[in-house]
Amino acid sequence: MPTISDVAARAGVSTATVSRALNGKPTVDPDLASRVRAAATELGYQPNGPARNLRRQEAAVVALIISDVENPFFTAIARGVEDVAHEVGYSVVLCNSDESGEKENRYIDIAIQERVAGVILSPSGTATSVAKLANRGTAYVAVDRPLPGQDSDVVLVDTRQAARQATAHLIAQGYERIGCVTGPTGVRTADDRLAGYRDALKAARHRSTPKLVRRTEYKAAGAHRATLDLMSQPEPPDALLVANSAMTVGVLRALQELTIRPGTDVGLVSFDDAPWAELVDPPLTVVAQPAYEIGAAAARLLLARIADNSRPPTTTTLGARLIERASSHL
């Protein structure tokens, strides 16, 4: 395998000049830079990514900022990121923002201070200091949700379509008062899942009412309160679409307290195929998102952007699939 010294010898320059030329430094004479690039091409020289980052005083480390480390969806994303990064010599530092813009901003500041090579983040939905990454030239990729007001590489799932399919499934099963428990207003995934739910009701000319929708934090506690409120109405829902698995824990707790049995008294579909979804009684119908693949795709995009930060931003949209189990059948 050719080395930087081989390129320097072929081009008739020093190894320092080769390094500066291949890293696009403006201090290198254009003719010399052209000669270096030609020599590198002729020899088939490929710079070592982590080593090059270290020479630029950047660590061979990427930061992963996720919304909720307790949510299996995000831990599966983290595994996908780590597997791809590890293959090429990068380490991954995991940061948990807890859906807090303040914590997210703090972790971005730390990533800059520690000179990480790149950042993958699940945006909190609030204004962030991600512009600092762009200003410094640090590569970054968004997962699960796009960055508000920023052009960046992003890996998404078409959750609006998935929510529409899940709601259509409940309609097909004969449920008439279908409710939705989703996340906060302004969070892209929460908005999309509510929109997909409404799309399905509209397409089926089904009864739709704000009384059957509750928005709360993406946590079990909020979903628990929302479900108790929904089920206390004079005409409570006979089925529920729940926006993630953490919320579903709260929904199941509320139904248990009210002695309402999923799959018998109320239909239930949850986003995300958590490891316990098949183990509850009855097993949960879920919208399975390709979380590991999201992480792996984001890591590959980040590595490509570390190598060339001038590339145009791309959006990768993956699909989800409905897994039917007993909780959604009358």
Rank of each mutant, 00 (worst) to 15 (best):
Ile4Ala: 05
Gly12Met: 11
Val13Phe: 06
Val13Ile: 15
Leu22Ser: 05
Gly24His: 12
Lys25Met: 08
Leu32His: 08
Leu54Cys: 03
Ile66Phe: 07
Asn71Gly: 04
Pro72Phe: 15
Phe73Gln: 04
Ala76Asp: 13
Glu87Pro: 06
Val88Leu: 06
Val88Pro: 01
Asn96Ser: 09
Asn96Thr: 01
Glu102Thr: 15
Lys103Leu: 13
Asn105Arg: 15
Tyr107Pro: 02
Ala111Leu: 05
Glu114Asn: 14
Arg115Asp: 05
Val116Tyr: 14
Ile120Ser: 03
Leu121Arg: 04
Ala127Ser: 13
Asn135Arg: 15
Tyr140Trp: 13
Arg145Glu: 00
Asp158Ser: 12
Arg160Asn: 04
Ala163Cys: 11
Ala166Leu: 07
Ala168Asp: 12
Ala168Gly: 11
Leu170Gln: 06
Gln173Ala: 11
Gln173Phe: 14
Gln173Gly: 07
Cys180Tyr: 05
Thr185Glu: 09
Thr185Tyr: 08
Arg188Met: 08
Tyr197Phe: 15
Ala203Asn: 03
Lys211Glu: 02
Leu212His: 02
Leu212Arg: 02
Ala220Gln: 09
Met231Ser: 01
Gln233Asn: 05
Ala239Ile: 12
Ala239Tyr: 08
Asn244Arg: 11
Thr248Pro: 10
Gly250Asn: 10
Gly250Lys: 05
Leu268His: 09
Ser270Met: 08
Phe271Trp: 00
Pro275Asn: 00
Glu278Cys: 08
Leu279Val: 08
Pro290Ser: 14
Ala297Thr: 15
Ala297Asn: 14
Ala298Gln: 01
Ala298Phe: 14
Ala299Phe: 04
Ile306Pro: 00
Ala320His: 11
